[in-house]
Simulated assay, not measured.
Amino acid sequence: MFDFILNKPVELKVGDQMLKFSTLADFEFCMSGRTAIPSSKITDLVKFSTDQLKKEARTIKDIEKRFVSILSKSIEDPASINRALRELDPLIFSQDHSWRDIIAGLNNGDDAFNPYRRIALVKYMQYLSSRQEIIKYLYNEKKQNYKAGTETYSGASEPSEFKETLLLDNTVFEPGAQDFSKENSFERMPKGEAVTVVLTPNEEIDILLSKHKCKLAAQNGVQFIDQAGRVYKLNKGRNLIGRDSVSNVMIEPNLRDVSRLHLVIENFGDNSMQLTDLSSHGTYISSKYLTSRTGGQTSKS
């Protein structure tokens, strides 16, 4: 499905169409247009019961965990993404926006297409996040309608469906310009995409894991300071931040809105680093680091 010659465009057959990409940036731009939810999918979700919405949310959550593991490993070992994608059941991918055909096409390429695979997986995860947001909204609307008495359900057990769960809670803290000065306003990092941060000696910046305020500091190397003030010196290379026991910086297990593998920090050893958010509830940094994004990466302006 792919024709690849050095300095020649990349061609990908999707169904009856042949898509041609002159650069990796062209491919990323095309995939970015496939992260929204088709109106037909939204119409279907509106008809779901609360039980069905919860089941859909859990399915997406399980799929995201597998993708997070693949992306995390690919940061340290870029070639691993080829093997990992081939091992997945193609049916795990939605047919919306021809995602299943795109992944199938990528699986017919060699390791030269690993950068394309990574972009496709990142954008597909953003598509899943969009689906999850719609599900959260619909679930909470049904919950509010039930409380207001404007919606009824069949079955005596229906009210128990509204037991609060973090998975479907849309009240998780979303910092914005209204919470901070304009200069220090926070924005959510794009999921799965690398954001470059360069610190000056002795500089500290705030970073939020979901709603928990932490810091990055350039003091005798790069340090991560968690929400409780504990200081961790980051290794050169890949550092995992999250609740999982394999993390280099292990966040308190009771902070359930912090993902097991929440953030990857690739420390280059010269006070520069790349941050990649892999979480469900987001990583937030100053908006000034997100103003000059190109090619899936972000540089400090």
Rank of each mutant, 00 (worst) to 15 (best):
T283D: 05
V172C: 11
G155H: 12
I81F: 02
S286L: 00
R230H: 15
M273K: 07
R83E: 04
K13S: 07
D277Y: 06
K236Y: 08
N220K: 14
V249K: 03
G295M: 07
Y139L: 08
P38T: 03
F4D: 10
V198P: 00
P9A: 05
A120S: 12
L275H: 06
T283P: 01
S299D: 01
R230K: 14
G282Y: 04
H262A: 09
N254A: 10
G149E: 06
P115D: 12
A104G: 11
T196H: 03
G221M: 08
F113E: 07
E151R: 15
R118Y: 02
K300L: 05
G192T: 04
H97M: 12
G229V: 09
N202W: 12
L12W: 03
D96Q: 06
T196G: 09
P190V: 12
V14G: 03
L255Y: 14
K41G: 01
K236W: 05
F21A: 05
D110S: 14
A79W: 09
L199G: 08
S279H: 10
Q17P: 00
I63F: 10
R260L: 09
K65N: 09
F93M: 03
F180W: 11
I225M: 10
L24A: 08
Q274C: 07
E141P: 00
E141S: 09
E28K: 07
P9T: 08
A84K: 01
A218I: 11
K41S: 14
L275S: 09
E28I: 15
H281N: 15
I285S: 01
G295H: 06
L45E: 11
G229H: 08
R118N: 03
N114Q: 07
I225V: 15
M273S: 08
L19E: 03
K211F: 10
M31I: 06
P175G: 10
R86S: 02
E11M: 08
L19Y: 04
K65T: 08
L216G: 02
E204T: 15
E87S: 13
P90R: 13
L71W: 00
D111E: 15
L45N: 04
K163H: 06
S301P: 12
P9K: 05
G221F: 04
A148H: 07
E158A: 15
Y146C: 02
N7H: 15
M189G: 06
K300F: 01
D77L: 07
E11D: 08
Q227W: 08
S130H: 12
E28P: 00
S181P: 04
D89H: 07
S80F: 02
G15E: 11
D277S: 13
M31S: 14
I135C: 03
N248I: 04
Y137S: 11
R238P: 10
N220R: 13
P175S: 14
D3R: 11
Y284H: 13
L216Q: 07
V46E: 13
L168K: 01
K142S: 04
S247F: 04
Y139W: 13
T59C: 05
C30Q: 11
Y289W: 04
S72Q: 08
G237P: 14
H212S: 09
K147C: 06
S299L: 01
S130L: 03
C214M: 08
C30M: 09
Q274M: 12
F29N: 13
L106F: 10
H281D: 01
